[in-house]
């Protein structure tokens, strides 16, 4: 495996009425070719912003990349021209958005929209592009693809629209696919179909996938590695198994413990769920210390002095916390 995308100490700031909001705070992520990387965290922690920054789509103003680099192999996308970024999007990196209706054009047939995408990046005839669209719809498991290619987005169910999005994102054979909560609005049954589809496509084409979600179960099911975000910081990364069965950061532990997991044999006794006390801090009011300190039961004086750096605890598992020793001893 080789590193295909490497994000280094990236900082993104937004000007807001309440002051400067540092929505991404020195985040570093490496994506290996052919892997599925999960990004998890609560609403507002910066998951979508990470995706938009990679795609060169941060609205500016009010946002701006203040420092850091995003290396696509050797090329720094932070420094790339607008024209080059347009090439990268769709051609090399494509994205599936949370709400398919916002990214599908309601007045065009879905087949034409996929064909359009193909034509943008490849020199083929319109007819071949249309055939490719039908082929992609077949691949993503849409029944009667020739007929459905002629449908307008509103004529399809939510699950089918999401599949059209995936077909569109994959039609230009990207090397990296970013999926931002691709199943949040869907039933678990349809979600399972989409997950299977993503896994199959990844295995077949070797596309590296960044999967953004707030669902630990989705991470468990899909991702090889996971990164946990809190208030614009990456606070823990590692192999999915390590994150789920041996979480070390107090926030990751809290996040996993508060989810009512579905058991095959539920017990009669039902303890109350464990809670993370308090609320997520406002990004304009972060102190200089650990962003989790106001809610952390393990906090010591040092935590409020300086932000804990993210450090390896073994070869691939990294955590940003001063007090791991005490945390894991509990």
């Amino acid at each position: 495996m080789s590193t295909i995308l490497s994000i280094n100490d990236l900082i993104v700031d937004f000007k807001t009425r309440a002051g400067n909001a540092r929505v991404l705070n020195e985040i570093s992520i490496e994506l290996q070719s052919g892997e599925i990387l999960g990004i998890v965290g609560e609403s507002g922690c910066g998951k979508s912003m990470t995706a938009l920054t990679i795609m060169g789509l941060v609205p500016s103003p009010p946002g701006k990349i203040s420092s850091g680099s995003i290396l696509l192999e050797e090329e720094d996308l932070v420094k790339a021209s607008t024209a080059r970024m347009r090439q990268v999007r769709g051609g090399i990196i494509s994205m599936i958005f949370q709400e398919p209706m916002t990214s599908l054009n309601p007045v065009f047939r879905v087949g034409d929209q996929i064909a359009e995408c193909v034509l943008l990046h490849e020199e083929i005839t319109k007819e071949d592009a249309w055939n490719r669209a039908v082929e992609m719809l077949t691949k993503v498991g849409i029944p009667e693809p020739e007929i459905r290619a002629r449908a307008y987005p509103h004529e399809l169910s939510g699950g089918m629209r999401q599949r059209v999005m995936i077909a569109m994102a994959l039609s230009c054979r990207p090397r990296i696919l970013i999926a931002d909560e691709p199943t949040t609005a869907l039933d678990v049954t349809v979600q399972a179909q989409i997950f299977d589809l993503l896994k199959d496509l990844q295995r077949e084409t070797g596309t590296a996938i960044i999967m953004i979600t707030h669902d630990m179960g989705a991470i468990a099911e899909l991702a090889d590695r996971a990164a946990v975000m809190y208030a614009g910081h990456i606070i823990e990364t590692g192999k999915t198994e390590d994150i789920l069965s041996n979480p070390q950061h107090p926030y990751t532990r809290g996040l996993i413990a508060c989810v009512p997991h579905l058991e095959e044999n539920p017990s009669e006794i039902r303890p109350y769920l464990s809670e993370i006390k308090g609320v997520v801090p406002s990004l304009t009011e972060l102190g200089k210390g650990c962003a989790f300190a106001p809610r952390c039961p393990y906090k010591t004086d040092v935590c409020e002095e300086e932000r804990p750096p993210i450090e390896l605890v073994d070869s691939v598992h990294a955590v940003a916390c001063y007090n791991i020793k005490y945390v894991v001893a509990v």
Partner: peptide, 13 residues
């Protein structure tokens, strides 16, 4: 049964 099986859970991949 199908509904329960569709729920993602921590399990062997």
């Amino acid at each position: 049964q199908a509904l329960l099986a569709a729920v993602p859970k921590a399990r062997a991949r």
